[in-house]
C-alpha cells in the first residue's frame, strides 16, 4: 500500500515558507500566508500562460529581433535568419546555440508543459517515469531560453557606435522576452503534485473500477 499522503489528511504545505499545517487553519500559522492544498487553478493558469507564450512565439520568430545598422547599411534579421547567417559563415557552434536556446527550447518547453497539463487533467496517460523526466527537463532547460534576450540586450547596450555600427532591438525581442517569461510563469504555476494525484486516482480506478474523480 502507498504511504499516506498529505492531501488525504488535508495537510497543506505553505507556498511561502513550506510549513505543513492543516488546511482548515486557512492561514499558515508561521507566515500567515493563505494555505492551499494545491496551487489554485494551476492547470488553468498554466494553460493561460502557455497560450500567451504560444501567441507571442509567432511574432518572435517572424519579426526581426535585432536591427544592425553598419555604415548606413541597415540589416534587420529574425532569429532564424541570424541562425542561417552564422551557419553560412561557418560558426556552427554559435548557430547551434542560438538555434537550441531560441527556437528548440521554448518550443520544447511549451510542448512539454502542454503535455503535462494534459496528463494532469487526465487527457493522456503516460507512465510516471516519463512524467517525472519531462517535468525535470522542463525545469532544467527553461531558464536557458532567456539567453537570446540577454544577447540582444547586451549587444544593444554595447554596440552604439553612432554612424559606424548601431544595434537596436527589433519588435521580436519584446515578443521573445514575453515567450520566455510566460513559459516561466507557466512552469511556476504548474503544480506537479496534480500529476501524482491523477496517477493515484487512476490507480484507484484501476483497482476499484470507478471512474476518476473530476
Amino acid at each position: 500500500m502507498t504511504p499516506p499522503r498529505a492531501i488525504h489528511r488535508a495537510i497543506a504545505s505553505c507556498h511561502t515558507c513550506g510549513l505543513a499545517s492543516p488546511v482548515s487553519l486557512g492561514k499558515c500559522p508561521r507566515c500567515h500566508s493563505t494555505l492551499h492544498l494545491r496551487k489554485s487553478n494551476s492547470i488553468q493558469r498554466t494553460l493561460a500562460f502557455l497560450i500567451a507564450a504560444s501567441a507571442l512565439y509567432i511574432p518572435a520568430n517572424i519579426l526581426p529581433i535585432m536591427v544592425v545598422a553598419e555604415f548606413g547599411d541597415v540589416l534587420a534579421s529574425t532569429i532564424l535568419e541570424g541562425v542561417a547567417i552564422f551557419w553560412r559563415k561557418g560558426d556552427y557552434p554559435i548557430a547551434l546555440v542560438i538555434f537550441i536556446a531560441s527556437i528548440l527550447i521554448p518550443v520544447l518547453k511549451i510542448i512539454a508543459l502542454f503535455w503535462l497539463c494534459a496528463a494532469a487533467s487526465g487527457k493522456v496517460h503516460p507512465s510516471p517515469a516519463a512524467l517525472g523526466r519531462v517535468y525535470w527537463i522542463t525545469e532544467l532547460v527553461g531558464r536557458w531560453s532567456m539567453v537570446d534576450v540577454f544577447v540582444v540586450a547586451v549587444l544593444v547596450a554595447l554596440v552604439q557606435l553612432g554612424a559606424l555600427m548601431t544595434i537596436t532591438p527589433g519588435p521580436a525581442a519584446l515578443a521573445f522576452a514575453g515567450v520566455v517569461v510566460f513559459t516561466m510563469f507557466a512552469a511556476m504555476s504548474f503544480d506537479p503534485r496534480l500529476l501524482w494525484d491523477r496517477l493515484e486516482s487512476l490507480e484507484k480506478t484501476k483497482t476499484s473500477g470507478n471512474p476518476p474523480a473530476p
Binding site: F49, L56, I58, I62, L174, F182
Partner: peptide, 13 residues
Amino acid sequence: VPILAILIGGWLI
C-alpha cells in the same frame, strides 16, 4: 494574460 499576449502579438505583426 493570453488574451493580452495575443493582442500584443497580433499588434506587433
